[in-house]
Design a protein around this nucleic acid. Structure first.
Lengths: 332, 332
DNA sequence: GCGCGGATTGCAACCGGTTGCACCCCCGGG
DNA sequence: CCCGGGGGTGCAACCGGTTGCAATCCGCGC
């Protein structure tokens, strides 16, 4: 069926080693041999079997990409960036869709069976222990969008969610809101908890401010919308920090259904700055998370780990900033 | 480093073959041997190397998933469905992000290097020749969302785009629009061309109707928006068939910016029925494409091809239907 | 013309499994 | 008690490459 090393060797009249060497970077082959081999390879349409070579080299260039955010539009951007960044470096993403799972055991086993060189956990909801399971199984791992503070054993690339919560709180204060609310993601999502913590901590110093909070059932449009509908039914706050842009968009829909104008009747500030937030019909004031930098950095880190698997774990935290659009009233 | 067959064999006191057999379905092993092996395997945390075994079995369970639609929100749904459907069947998606490429050569080579068992081309814009390149290279392939009529050599699963164009035209006629337009995807996308063809063919029989058409630069929000802005600047039609929901959403934004009410001032009908189209703030009348069925069917087909690689090619076409929402005026 | 050393090359073992085949063991029937 | 046969087992070859090592080649200086 497929053409192998041996076929090329036979046609070129050299040993199998010679063929192997012409296809491996930096091996010692004379120009003459190389050209004979290349000619034969071209003629037969040969290209080396990456899996077979992985057996001896121990490197597959396969990178496990594990996520559970398949319902948040931001993931489309994340996904595009990851696949491109990996491809550019000659690495191949092997996807794991975690949607209904939170136990790492299956993914770990599966990715080990495929001998991935490393794994990337791309999720803001999974706990540090999830990524650690890969580490413990000997799979180099980066947790992108992970919780930073408490993960000394695993590389984390992302943002400081607590600080983002603070930032949102300061922003609402600066605009003179007196009754503010947090509309977060699911209660078991680390990002939802951390953002909540920052938000409430910052407001502790302001006893005059009335603070409420609630958690949506998921990072999704419907969850944001239905949660906001619930809030609107019973004396809502003046402004909300939504833990994610997709929740914000859901909340905005709820406002519209009640005939309320965002920014005027009720303030909304999101987090992520996904593409859709820029759309004129959405025009969401939000905290920008530098997705592209985070992903590039994550893939860089993965690449480094390939050379140095035992690399000392680090947290790479990127600053966020508020993007002013139309869903908060002006600063005082 | 990692534990191998040999280690387990040694601990269990049996031959390597025995271990291999206890891990392969339907091999002949006595209960006693099996239990000894399982105990040893558990103790060592052994799990077989899928890549090594692929060398002799010729099966990797790796499926190449190739796409270029990373900027259309519908792809999030597509992607979720594909990865889940594959996982459920024990297959592993190896992603190729084609974004800036239209030549199959690189993807084919790469996927062959990784010995994928099959490839899925998930794109409504790539020509049949793209998928055929995989077929010609001996890689079983399914073109999902591909052009149906002209691809006798490759499996295609999707919809009849020409018929969808017709359907859109009939829908606009039924609502009494006299001046209608087609706002399609990129001119080189097969789906844009086919939908255009159906749309104009259907209207040929109605010389009293004024028909215009244009093609956006991409299937994206911005492309739809800017194209509609251009149209609005110069005597627009009464209603448009947008070749994709994301174009529709962009077009809707343009309408809003001009203070025009969709369904009242200008009609819009899309295609796809993506989740966002259901949002109250979008409320897009559109042609529903049965994404889930298409994907399930595609993966079924892939699975069949694993058993029967030379299977005679077929086109699986799923019917679409109009979903009435708020962006067209009522039927007469 | 000869010797030397670095560059090339082929051999053979190995990576982690799978599998055809021969052999062994055990049981039941004659 | 002997024989036949089927299931279970291990040996060894093989899947498609890689790589350490020893042998060979070649050009150059003396």
């Amino acid at each position: 069926m497929s053409v192998t090393l041996k076929d090329v060797a036979a046609l070129a009249g050299v040993s199998r080693s010679a063929v192997s060497r012409t296809f491996t970077e930096g091996a010692s082959v004379s120009a003459k041999t190389r050209s004979k081999v290349e000619k034969a390879a071209l003629e037969l349409g040969y290209s080396p079997n990456a899996l077979a070579s992985s057996l001896t080299t121990g490197r597959t260039k396969l990178i496990g990409l594990i996520s559970n955010n398949f319902h948040n539009p931001i993931f489309l951007e994340v996904f595009d960036q990851f696949t491109r960044a990996l491809q550019e470096r000659g690495l191949r993403p092997l996807i794991v869709n975690l949607t209904d799972e939170t136990e790492p055991a299956n993914s770990v086993r599966m990715l080990r069976q495929y001998s991935v060189d490393a794994a990337i956990v791309a999720s803001s909801t999974l706990p540090p222990s999830f990524a650690k399971a890969f580490h413990d199984a000997g799979v180099p791992v980066v947790h992108t969008f992970g919780r930073s503070a408490t993960s000394p054993e695993v590389h984390v690339v992302g943002i400081d969610n607590v600080e983002c919560g603070r930032m949102a709180a300061r922003e609402l204060l600066a605009r003179g809101y007196r009754h503010v609310g947090y509309l977060g993601g699911p209660k078991d999502a680390t990002s939802a908890l951390d953002r909540h913590r920052g938000f409430t901590e910052e407001l502790c110093d302001h006893p005059e401010i009335n603070v409420t909070h609630c958690f949506a059932s998921a990072y999704s449009f419907e969850a944001g919308r239905s949660e906001m509908l619930r809030l609107l039914a019973d004396s809502p706050a003046e402004a909300y920090f939504c833990g994610d842009d997709i929740l914000s968009v859901g909340a905005l829909s709820a406002l519209a259904e009640h005939g309320l104008k965002p920014g005027k009747d009720i303030g909304i500030i999101g987090l992520n700055d996904m593409e859709m937030s820029r759309w004129q019909s959405v025009d969401l004031t939000t905290i920008h998370q530098p997705i592209k930098q985070i992903i590039t950095s994550s893939v860089d880190l993965v690449e480094q780990m390939l050379k140095e698997p035992q690399r000392y774990p680090e947290a790479r935290i990127f600053p966020c900033r508020v993007i002013e659009r139309g869903t908060l009233r002006p600063r005082l």
